[in-house]
Design a binder for these strands. Sequence first.
DNA 1: TGAATTCACTACGTTGTCGTAGCGTAATGA
DNA 2: TCATTACGCTACGACAACGTAGTGAATTCA
Lengths: 187, 187
Amino acid sequence: MARPLSTEAREKALAAAQEVLSTDGVEGFTVDAVAKRSGVAKTTIYRHFSSGNELLINAIDCMVTPFPTPNTGSLKGDIEEFIQSVLPFIDDHSMQRTMMGVIAAAASDPELHRVHQEMMQLRMTPIKTMLELARGRGELRPDLDLDLALDFVEGPFFFRKMIRNEPMGEKEIRAFAAMIIHGLEGA
Amino acid sequence: MARPLSTEAREKALAAAQEVLSTDGVEGFTVDAVAKRSGVAKTTIYRHFSSGNELLINAIDCMVTPFPTPNTGSLKGDIEEFIQSVLPFIDDHSMQRTMMGVIAAAASDPELHRVHQEMMQLRMTPIKTMLELARGRGELRPDLDLDLALDFVEGPFFFRKMIRNEPMGEKEIRAFAAMIIHGLEGA
DNA sequence: TGAATTCACTACGTTGTCGTAGCGTAATGA
DNA sequence: TCATTACGCTACGACAACGTAGTGAATTCA
């Protein structure tokens, strides 16, 4: 082996892939576009990634970052903090497009489905931890189904921003948190 | 005018378009596929629809049907009935795929965006009516923000089924309804 | 230094989709 | 009846994306 594959070319390609994903969405994602944008030759891209689809998957994998587990001492504070921390991320329109595209495409492509599952788990884990902590403090009933509670915490927020594209300010965040708390406590 | 465009060809094409949409998703939707499936010649399809995209939009338009407004006399009953009526529809995997595909594609295509908006409104209206009825009966506070409540009713359900693909039985439906009620009342 | 290999570049063949043209045939209105 | 028009069929040109070949220059290991 005289010359190893340069990590620089790989990273430039991945970075450009993420950019293309943001601006053109999953359906506009092409190897040609990534090559043009990155300055890395298409042939070189194929040396690093066996197919366009694998490039896509790796790019998505790099975009996914876990959220920190909120820990303010009370469930109400935790939920508000959680929404606050996710909001700027989810408010980005191109990110919305990318996420929805991945979710939709995951229905057809088994590899993307795996990525989708990972994404979900990464996002759900801190929420679940948050709920377990609250239960430990006695803020929630011990027999509460945490799996359902998960949907209850994330669902309204997700639906409003991703599906209905309605705005969400401080007032709405507090209202949501209050409703969620009451719902979980009363269950 | 010697011979009008046959409604039969149009309807056969539309029906096949819906089938293709179900089996192959939005990304697999092509005029050729519809032509092959319907038995209607591609050229004929173009006589009825100015473009493949217009065929797609018309097909989706035909698929969307409004849900009846639940009216059991109590909000709890209404919510359970609502979930019950939507469940079989949303449990259909191909329908899930189609819907998510439309939502994702709507981010790029303004015409699809319009269809998406119509779809949403058609679905949200009965829920809003249901909430207004409950408020009229005194089951909800008069100052409740119905727009937020909408997300609160639909969100958890949507998130669980469409995004996380988790199962949902009688027990979960009742648990959801109970949580939603408590959340709305406590807000 | 020198052999090997990656890199960028251009170009190609393949495939799939779009929308259209031309052709006979069949159906409809005047 | 008969002119008109839709129908199905086959084929085509345009275009975009895929993945690959070949070239010369640059880089790295031995």
